[in-house]
Design a protein around this nucleic acid. Structure first.
Lengths: 191, 191
DNA sequence: ATAATAATTTGACCGCGGTCATTTTAAAGG
DNA sequence: CCTTTAAAATGACCGCGGTCAAATTATTAT
């Protein structure tokens, strides 16, 4: 029969998460090593993998936390009055995702549900983000010939490709924000 | 003084590449193991890394070969008469890139130049693809308020995001082609 | 209390990409 | 031909994510 999770286990998990957050703020996401993490916390390596499926799964939690904090900020804006306003609102999120190539990689890998039964934390933030966007888009001064849902899909597509370009040596000079304003004007306000 | 590359070296490289192509057609890109490769070819592991910077670098070559073959086909179409026609023309390429999540990952990582001085093979194919697209777009029945260059950027952005969705469990049922036709109609022929 | 059972932790071990000092082999100079 | 020099190949070794049978610790039943 199933027995309840022990307090000991919950504490170990929290210590691992807490220490992981510190590592990330010290050395970044990419440089976090599971071996360093467990030796700092003082548990065996196997313990980590008893609490998290794999390293990606830990990153999913840590990155989703950050995204949710940024979405909290985004939610305080209740409507968009221009494409520039849209871009300005989503920039903090895009800056975070493009802050490390590794973060972008994880984001892309985990932004969709990997299996039908299991939706990760980052995938949940995408859903939340989409809802926020769609709600604000309905009342904005944007094209009305397509749905807000489709409008949102486009914003996300252009965002991802702009981030990808900004992470690439040849295109890093033209900045992400300018490129996105141009693309989204063409997408959201075709003349 | 610099001495010329020896024939022996060129042959070793070709044997590695040839065997790698076989591995890929047998077990796919993801499952190719450098250790299997070198033991099949009969050289030491270090030899591989004397010929290729890393595993990604080999994948860059192999995947770019495939993309170039698909672009050769694409080039036989000389103009686009509709959005459906555009999508149909680029579908073989998108099917290949979405055939394995690993291929998509490599593609994204290597599609931009990683360093200013060094442009990879996949990055070259992107440039070639872009030229082909832009050329065909100029004469097509599409919106004229934005440049063919910008039009092409959008096609690539929507393509990438459609592939990402198709690799995700929740969205794989709605197929890539349908989604793309809807998005690109909204992008290329806004009413 | 004590035994039985289940949850938790452990650490030796594996797979695989990647490194590098050393050795082997080929080409150039005398 | 022999020596010198540079290219090519070698394989032991490392880093690090991930596994798993065994040991430990907590919980429940008697």
């Amino acid at each position: 029969m199933a027995r309840a999770k022990q307090l000991r286990s919950l504490k170990t998990r929290e210590r691992l998460l807490g220490s992981a957050r510190e590592f990330v703020s010290d050395v970044g996401f990419e440089e976090l090593r599971i071996e360093d993490l467990v030796s700092t916390v003082g548990v065996a390596k196997g313990t980590f993998f008893a609490h998290f499926k794999d390293k990606d799964s830990l990153m999913d939690i840590l990155i989703a936390e950050r995204i949710n904090a940024l979405l909290d900020d985004m939610e305080t804006v209740h409507n968009f009055d221009s494409v520039e306003h849209v871009v300005a609102s989503i920039m903090p999120l895009l800056m975070f995702i493009s802050s490390e190539r590794y973060v972008f990689d994880i984001f892309l890998r985990l932004s969709g549900a990997l299996a039908v039964e299991e939706i990760g934390k980052i995938a949940e933030t995408i859903y939340r983000y989409d809802c926020i966007l769609i709600d604000r888009l309905k009342s904005g001064p944007f094209r009305q010939d397509i749905s807000a849902e489709l409008l949102s899909e486009g914003i996300q597509a252009f965002s991802v490709s702009s981030i990808a370009l900004s992470l690439c040596a040849l295109h890093s000079e033209q900045n992400l924000e300018n490129r996105l304003v141009i693309q989204l004007n063409a997408w959201m306000c075709p003349s």
